[in-house]
């Protein structure tokens, strides 16, 4: 394997216009992500921490093209994917996936688990028959620790931790290489949180996945990440290995973060 990083972000900027009045005139902008650059190596986990509202989710969503970057470049295996049209980007939707923070709202309440996870297969493997799809979904559920009898249930019949597993199964369905995990464990209790983190690590080992792991719990980030980025007000203020961040924080904000961690 060459040294090209799986993901490379250069000078990424995402600004949101502030509009006002009836005519929706632009009266300013929110600089959600302001000139950010970083790399993620294949098979590694990069943790992204920072204050609420500092632009973490926005970076994640820009990577999977849920929002258009205002400026800057994103490379996937060395290929620029920033300005691709929706159609050109389609093959990348199979390689880049996302897991959301909120297990209650990330599954469509009106669809069964089989349909939710199967949707990904329908889109990217259109030649699969219904039966093949079902058995593939069952495999995926098994992979995240759920049972085949869960296939025909609806999301409200599951606990938060189980729903998060379903969300992970959906992301895995397209056999991605890279997953943006946007605070996947924040809403879960400590025990379930541990299970999900362990599951993500097992899957990484088994499938060679690469993660961008967004979180605000430093302990969890330190546990799962190889490398940590610290964000503040749309900029990356510190980038170092997990260990270094913890032992020798350089930036003021990072130090503040560490200080604020409540002690048990």
């Amino acid at each position: 394997m060459t040294d090209t990083p799986l993901i490379k972000v250069e000078h990424l900027k995402v600004y949101f216009p502030i509009t006002s009045g009836v005519l929706q005139r632009k009266s300013g902008e929110v600089r959600a992500v302001d000139d950010v650059s970083f790399e993620i190596l294949r098979g590694k986990t990069v943790g992204l921490v920072g204050e609420s509202g500092s632009g973490k989710t926005t970076i994640g969503r820009a990577l999977i093209r849920l929002i258009e970057p205002t400026d800057g470049h994103i490379f996937y295996k060395g290929e620029e994917i920033t300005r691709l049209s929706a159609k050109e980007f389609r093959p990348y939707r199979k390689k880049i996936q996302i897991i959301f923070q909120d297990p209650y709202n990330s599954l469509n309440p009106r669809l069964t688990i089989a349909d939710i996870v199967g949707e990904a297969l329908e889109i990217h493997f259109p030649r699969m028959t219904r039966l093949q799809r079902r058995s593939r979904v069952a495999d995926l559920l098994a992979k995240v620790g759920l049972k085949p009898e869960h296939l025909d249930r609806y999301p409200h019949e599951f606990s938060g931790g189980q729903r998060q597993r379903i969300g992970i199964a959906r992301a895995l369905a397209v056999e991605p290489e890279f997953i943006v995990c946007d605070e996947p464990v924040s809403a879960l209790d400590v025990s379930v949180q541990a299970q999900i983190v362990n599951l993500l690590q097992d899957l990484q080992e088994e499938l060679g996945l690469t993660y961008l792991f967004i979180a605000h719990d430093l302990a969890v980030v330190e546990h799962i990440s190889d490398f940590v980025l610290v964000m503040n007000r749309g900029k990356i203020v510190e980038a170092a290995t997990a260990e270094e961040i913890y032992t020798h924080p350089q930036d003021d904000y990072t130090r503040k973060l560490l200080d604020a961690v409540p002690k048990l």
Partner: peptide
């Protein structure tokens, strides 16, 4: 007791987190 055990702590890197 089990619940408190699950809490991940800074600077004590374990291979796996404890779950109940």
């Amino acid at each position: 007791r089990a619940l408190i055990d699950c809490v991940p702590r800074l600077g004590q890197k374990q291979r796996r987190l404890k779950a109940i």
